[in-house]
């Protein structure tokens, strides 16, 4: 306990020194990383961060659905209990695996599709009540307190990233509330991100030893994702729309 208390004050100290003596490299990188990631619970998310994800489709294994299962487990997404009912059309899919073949070259890629966390999200533009929203740190979510279930955002999303809760949600996770009659989509595991963690899908991809997904702060030039993007680049899906997505892909 006391160790942790010290840790906190040390963290605060580090924060202050880091800002005062910016550039002095006595601060160990580990701490810098933690300061950047773990937002204090009473502080709002700010535009100093922009959370994003980079997916290397060459590392993404065809047939592997670790990210999908992890997402479902994390967010309490279950297939329907109703018999005689085509689950695939009406159950929620926050993340899905897609396998593609280039029609000309025959090159086959496998990749996960999910909310692309656009800088200019069409779903946010069209939402009549403002339930569809983007946080200051770039995470796009649905505020299901004021979602009326009109589904206009689903019409507007170019990535089919959103699902409608077609039936009652039994036993939602306490950190991922979900309910019938509203629209939902990938939250980038915001409950984890706010506490300095990584989204469940990325964790699962790493645990499966594919390492195809990197999560991090696009605004931090030293983050792994920024470094990798700078070195090898990453494409946006439907870049023509100019949405500036937070999720980027390599190898497509």
């Amino acid at each position: 306990m006391s160790k942790e208390t010290i840790n906190i004050s040390r963290r605060g100290f580090v924060e202050k020194t880091a800002t005062t003596f910016a550039g002095i490299s006595i601060v160990p990188g580990v701490f810098l990383h933690q300061v950047a990631n773990a937002k204090p619970a009473d502080q709002p998310a700010t535009a100093d961060n922009r959370w994003g994800m980079l997916i290397d489709t060459n590392k993404c294994a065809s047939g592997c659905t670790a990210c999908v299962s992890a997402c479902n487990e994390e967010n309490g997404i279950k297939t329907s209990d109703h018999p005689n009912h085509d689950n695939q059309t009406t159950t929620q899919q926050w993340i899905r695996k897609v396998k593609l073949r280039d029609k000309q070259t025959g090159h086959v890629v496998s990749l996960p599709m999910m909310c692309q966390h656009c800088e200019h999200p069409p779903c946010v533009d069209v939402c009549p009540t403002g339930a569809s929203m983007k946080r200051a740190d770039g995470i796009v979510m649905v505020d299901r307190h004021i979602c009326i279930g009109c589904r206009y955002c689903m019409m507007a999303c170019p990535y089919k990233a959103r699902s409608f809760a077609h039936e009652t949600v039994e036993d939602p996770k306490e950190y991922a509330p979900r309910g019938k009659g509203t629209v939902e989509s990938c939250t980038l595991c915001v409950h984890r991100v706010d506490e300095g963690g990584t989204p469940a899908c990325v964790e699962a991809c790493n645990e499966a030893e594919h390492g195809a997904m990197i999560f991090g702060d696009l605004k931090d030039p030293n983050s792994a994702i920024s470094q990798e993007l700078k070195k090898h680049g990453g494409k946006q899906i439907r870049a023509d729309l100019g949405l500036n997505t937070g999720v980027r892909y390599q190898g497509i």
Partner: peptide, 25 residues
């Protein structure tokens, strides 16, 4: 207008999907 699949990956054909990408619904 909704049934027509969205053009997410121009020049690619969808081999596998669980969400009807590239297919008319």
């Amino acid at each position: 207008g909704q049934a027509y699949p969205m053009e997410m990956f121009p020049g690619m054909e969808v081999l596998e999907t669980t969400f009807y990408d590239g297919q008319a619904t």
